[in-house]
């Protein structure tokens, strides 16, 4: 597996949300382009209204784009045909932000994970083993299989969210603010887990966060978004150590602790 293989190429992405009652909707993505290579982490940092969450949804086809193009290994990610769609589902997955709504409150961990594993073609016979394997990979014991969401802590729920994303053995995981809703003391263990998984499985991450310190820690390359555009992009150390865009500088300056160094 060549580590320089480009998995995702996105260009000119545009998305305008529909407005209500004759108003023109808000432009969430404005000519956004980026690339993601295998095994690397691209950090996307921005504040509210920057469009970073919209970007996550567009990449996951949870919402449509008005313009632009995304290619995954040459296949059209935005408007795939049926065969490509099935393929893409197993290549790119997502971990969400809010552990309390990441699982259906009426279903067990087992049901939630099987739902994902089935997509990967895991049959009844192998299901139990696969589920245990997944829980293992995220550091949870097998007893958790029969637990309901309200019996689990935020950190544990987030691990299950990661296990769910892993179930289809993807090559890319979009992490949309996946530690923002956790207690500080739990965040680091989840971040460590993500790094471990990246090493062991060669995963590529699109790591979205408003927290510059966390993005700096996790990313090889970083893209700074503001008002739907990418204002600066490059190697993490370069962008954050020597920012060229005004906004990036402002962002760095506003993080207590970051400025000291």
């Amino acid at each position: 597996m060549s580590s320089s293989e480009t998995l995702i190429r996105a260009g000119g992405l545009r998305k305008r949300y529909a407005g209500e009652g004759g108003r023109r909707g808000h432009l969430a993505l404005d000519d956004v382009s980026f690339e993601l290579a295998a095994g690397e982490t691209l950090g996307i940092v921005g504040e509210s209204g920057s469009g970073k969450s919209t970007l996550a949804r567009v990449v996951m086809r949870l919402t449509s784009a008005d313009g632009g193009r995304i290619e995954y290994c040459g296949r059209n990610l935005l408007a795939p045909n049926r065969e490509d769609a099935a393929f893409l589902t197993r290549q790119v997955q997502i971990v969400f932000q809010d552990p309390s709504s990441s699982m259906n409150p009426r279903r067990t961990v087992r049901q939630a994970l099987s739902e994902a594993a089935r997509v990967a073609g895991v049959g009844k016979r192998n299901m139990e083993d696969r589920l245990i394997e997944l829980l293992d990979a995220v550091g949870l014991s097998r007893e958790k299989l029969d637990a309901y969401p309200h019996q689990l802590s935020g950190g544990q729920l987030q691990r299950i969210g990661i296990a769910r994303a892993l179930a289809v053995s993807p090559r890319v995981i979009v992490a949309d603010e996946c530690v923002s809703a956790l207690d500080v003391s739990v965040q680091s263990s989840i971040l460590n887990l993500l790094l471990d998984l990246q090493r062991n499985h060669g995963l590529a991450y699109i790591f979205i966060s408003h927290d510059l310190s966390v993005v700096h820690h996790m990313s090889d390359r970083v893209a700074v978004m503001k008002s739907g555009r990418i204002v600066e992009e490059g190697e993490t150390a370069a962008v954050l150590g020597n920012p060229s865009h005004e906004y990036t500088r402002e962002l760095i300056a506003s993080v207590p602790g970051l400025e000291k160094h």
Binding site: S188, S189, S213, D220, A237, L240, L258
Partner: peptide, 16 residues
């Protein structure tokens, strides 16, 4: 357990 610029990126953080 907080990442900050001094800490080498992509290395494990201390955690509780």
């Amino acid at each position: 357990s907080r990442p900050h610029i001094g800490h080498a990126p992509k290395t494990p953080l201390a955690s509780i």
